[in-house]
């Protein structure tokens, strides 16, 4: 791992020959066995052509999918030894997700959408509005807490989703094409927000097929046909 910037920091993601084959038929080797360490405080971008296995990688790292080979350690916890319910709890407590499609509940206000991330984590009811407002203020939406997502711009929606990902205080932020649906202005605002959050200590993994976006990472990982490789030079997507 050439570009690991802070070897002293503890690893957040640790892949040990992790691979995933969808059973099919026909079986699809969506992620080929490989090693990877992402340390606390890193900002990593993942690039690769469509269908190369980027989302598969993110699903494994986010405990949404279980690898069929190797072992994946999150915050030093061997997730292969956990029960399904424990993996779910771990996911809710330690990982924040940001998706290209936002996945906001259309009939709930921005604040309620953010509060949803605290429902299953056992945050007391009375603390939630305050924490949600703080998270929204942090993404620059302090004035729009009661707005419905359907009345918001794409950039605003993605910032609500980021606030939702932040509010449970995860150790890892996984973003799958967060700027994919945004114009350049809004994309830039979201990227700057992610950079600020990273500077404050949160580990960020960002998937993109935009090379300009990928260049923002301090470290870039390329996936091709399900194989991980780490290099400055990225092929055309």
């Amino acid at each position: 791992m050439t570009a690991s910037p802070a070897p002293s920091e503890p690893p957040v993601i640790e892949f040990r020959q992790v691979g995933l084959t969808y059973p099919g038929p026909p079986p699809v080797e969506a992620f080929r066995p490989g090693d990877l360490v992402v340390r606390k405080g890193e900002f990593i971008t993942v690039v690769g052509p469509s269908g190369s296995g980027k989302s598969t990688f993110l699903n494994i790292a986010g405990l949404l999918d279980t690898p069929t080979r190797g072992s994946f350690l999150l915050d030093g916890i061997d997730t292969g030894r956990l029960k399904d319910t424990e993996r779910t709890t771990l996911r809710g407590r330690r990982i924040g997700f940001v998706f290209q499609a936002f996945h906001l509940l259309p009939h709930r206000s921005a604040r309620e959408n953010v509060e949803l991330a605290m429902v299953y984590g056992g945050v007391p009811r009375r603390e939630r509005p305050q924490r949600a407002s703080e998270a929204l203020a942090r993404v620059g939406l302090g004035h729009r807490t009661d707005a419905l997502p359907t009345r918001m711009s794409g950039g605003e929606r993605q910032r609500v989703a980021i606030a939702r990902a932040l509010v449970a205080r995860p150790s890892l932020l996984l973003c799958d094409e967060p700027t994919g649906n945004l114009d350049s202005g809004n994309a830039e605002a979201v990227l700057q927000l992610l950079e600020t959050l990273n500077a404050e200590g949160i580990t960020v993994v960002l998937i993109t097929h935009d090379l300009a976006v990928a260049a923002r990472g301090r470290r870039t990982i390329t996936i091709r046909d399900g194989t991980l490789s780490e290099s400055e030079q990225v092929g055309a997507c």
Partner: peptide, 26 residues
Amino acid sequence: MLSRIGEPRDASSQPDIGRSLFAPRD
């Protein structure tokens, strides 16, 4: 799914994860 029910877990390497909740009011 790699659930290992009943297998003793190494307490030092697997810290307490906590529990997911869904309160009746929620």
